[in-house]
């Protein structure tokens, strides 16, 4: 799946987690802009992992701060 298709799929997945309806761009941060706490992060990551059949380890999560980085990482992890 290319970056655009990956981005479209993630956009649908993040919808229920974006409770405040923040406008999401590549520079939107999870901790700051979306105010994800650790539990939300876990649930959201699990959704992404199941949807793409990948693992995003904690080590990799530590490198992902914003939405654009997530799309890049998921695109790459699909191999």
């Amino acid at each position: 799946m290319d970056r655009a298709a990956t981005a479209a799929k993630i956009a649908a997945l993040i919808e229920p987690f974006n409770k405040k309806g923040v406008e999401v761009t590549d520079t939107t941060t999870f901790a700051g802009d979306l105010e994800f706490d650790s539990l939300t992060v876990m649930d959201f990551v699990a959704e992404i992992e199941d949807a793409f059949d990948i693992i995003i380890s904690m080590n990799q999560q530590a490198e992902i701060e914003n939405y654009g980085q997530l799309i890049d990482a998921v695109t790459k992890l699909q191999g």
């Binding site: 876990m42 699990a46 992992e49 199941d50 693992i55 380890s57 904690m58 080590n59 990799q60």
Partner: peptide, 16 residues
């Protein structure tokens, strides 16, 4: 590499 799963969730563990 550290991969957590939902508390006591056997299916989530197996998938990972």
């Amino acid at each position: 590499e550290v991969v957590p799963f939902k508390h006591n969730d056997i299916v989530a563990m197996e998938k990972r």
